[in-house]
Design a protein around this nucleic acid. Structure first.
Lengths: 340, 340
DNA sequence: CTGCTAATGGAAACCGTTGTCAGATTCACC
DNA sequence: GGTGAATCTGACAACGGTTTCCATTAGCAG
């Protein structure tokens, strides 16, 4: 029976025809995939864990890009992609236990995420995209420190010394406010922490006191949140000449807020992003581009090829500084030799 | 053992503790999800079949919206979403057979799709989004005929009589060209066929000979393909005053081509779309909006609630004509009473 | 101390497939 | 007719859980 379905070459065409005919007549719907998976020990699917409200995940072009790349890799290999239901709110780790998959791709979760812990307990290979970085686990991501360093250098060389930062969520607890030094250094999102550290290093090297640089955090990752963060930042620190955002989405919000205030970009305010999404490119945002589609694809391939490999692998993807129309030297407020 | 994990109340805490302790010591990774699924006859996942290159699926905001809605419904119910690998090219129906799922959502496939046939053979509930429409199978979709009728009425009332149509793929065989009457009426994509029929009915009623209305088809659904279709259409029929597109993506391409030609929209050319994606709204495209997120969510809920129900259900979602800045009365070429 | 009931632990059946293996049948060929 | 290869048949043991069922024990009352 099994042979008729799975190994047509092992038996005569006539017999195969007869078997299949009889099966059809008896209303047999074909081998049960679950039973088959149990026996063959292959589920034919890859799990994807992203601890983010799915709405946001699908609304962020960078996330969609990763998803697309991963789906492509799965499609190539003929395996399914299983989206694990894991909202940030619910602690429902059961979904991770229940997922019949051959491996997991984990996309950008905090290092103390319970779902992640549940994934790592399972005896299947795992690849992490972006964060966290865990000893012994495959990881794919950009070199965040270097990437952010490029942005910082660019701004420093333009002459910016009074800057502000808008970043994404740093921990699982919501904090839509300014960020303290301890929260910065204790951030559970490795990527955001690294980016802040890289900024701190670069600006400190340029003689800027990092402790005096305001950092605003937003839990949700939307354009509107970017705008409200920019408002909060500029209300408190109007002297700022450049706003550094750790994502393009937040930067788009900052642009909107700048327009609302009548600030011209880049003459009155420089704005930078991160990711290099299409929308950013269209409006000429200065940003660091990272290959999101490649990121997903690489993670998928890495996962599907594990088993041939023993040592854990870390793949660092290239990034590229894209200087657009939203960065320029700061407007020098005090220029007595111009004034009357 | 099973009780220790799943029914803590059925045994003494002491025993439970001892069992779990021993399990941990032996390196037991918890119950195997596949074996569990086999016994309980619940996979805890919903399959999604979309016979479209995944790249395009993720690039089309309407498709992403559906996906998002479906994912939300699954998240609510705590079940996974299993993307079945099924490119239009490969006839690899095995992936459908291999998917361990409790039901399928089928999104916009041709009525002769082999993957769809494979899904229907499986003894699990199925919900179809958009197309095809199959007797006895749950379906969720807009009232395409009525929706397109609104567009047609709008254009007719504006005075357009010389129109052209750009539509999506009508069959699994590629045809990036004008569409014959037989191909129109024999289209395997129910939605596209219905839309064309509705246009034919509306314009015929307005005294326009439908046989003389050119229809251009594109296999791939991208902005570039929309542009090339518009070029083909306008090269052959420069007298056209309005281009009706069966999707916003194609309409965006048409807008681009119009600009390339130096045609002002809407003064020189009226362009309409279908779907109501964000990008269309932003530029003020005249289109019919359909609630794509709701579509996915409704399909998911319908599928997950089947079993409580016996009679197949068809849910028709509301659509709304959104008149934007891309439609206006045609430029009257011969206006002798105005001329000198 | 006996008898009954309730709680609990352990054993066995079952889910539906695949893989193996022994035995039966067919067929060709010497 | 005998031999060997090729093909087919049928039985059976996993795979790793869940569920049912039964035996054992504990608790308690008479």
């Amino acid at each position: 029976m099994s042979n008729a379905y799975n190994r047509p070459d092992q038996l005569s065409p006539e017999l195969r025809r007869r078997v299949l005919e009889t099966a059809r007549r008896l209303g047999y719907p074909g081998p049960d995939p679950v039973a088959r998976s149990l026996r063959t020990r292959r589920a034919g699917a890859v799990g994807l864990l992203l601890t983010e409200n799915l709405s946001y995940a699908f609304r962020d072009p960078a996330a969609v890009g990763v998803l697309e790349g991963l789906a492509l890799a799965c499609e190539d290999a003929g395996v399914g992609l299983h989206l694990v239901p894991a909202s940030p709110g619910r602690e429902d780790v059961a979904a991770v236990h229940r997922a019949g998959v051959d491996g997991f791709v984990v996309y950008s979760v905090p290092d103390d995420d319970p779902h992640l812990a549940a994934v790592l307990e399972r005896p299947v290979p795992t690849v992490i995209i972006d964060q966290p970085s865990i000893e012994g686990i495959d990881r794919v991501g950009p070199d965040d420190a270097a990437a952010v360093g490029k942005i910082a250098e660019h701004l420093v060389s333009l002459g910016h010394r009074q800057v502000g930062v808008i970043c994404m969520r740093l921990a699982r607890e919501r904090n839509d406010d300014f960020v303290s030094a301890t929260r910065q250094s204790g951030a559970h999102f490795h990527v955001q922490r690294t980016r802040l550290e890289a900024l701190a290093a670069a600006f400190s090297a340029a003689g800027v006191d990092w402790a005096g640089v305001p950092v605003v955090e937003r839990f949700d990752h939307t354009v509107d949140d970017g705008a409200s963060a920019a408002r909060q930042l500029l209300d408190a620190y109007p002297q700022i000449t450049a706003v550094i955002c750790t994502s393009d989405i937040l930067a788009l919000g900052t642009m909107a807020e700048a327009e609302r205030r009548g600030l011209r970009v880049p003459q009155d305010l420089t704005v930078t992003g991160f990711d290099g999404i299409a929308e950013a490119e269209r409006i000429g945002l200065t940003t660091v581009h990272q290959p999101v589609l490649e990121k997903g694809k690489t993670a998928g391939r890495l996962l599907l090829s594990s088993g041939e490999r023993s040592a854990p692998k870390t793949i660092t993807l290239p990034t590229e500084l894209r200087i657009g129309r939203t960065s320029a030297p700061p407007r020098t407020v005090e220029e007595p030799w111009f004034g009357g």
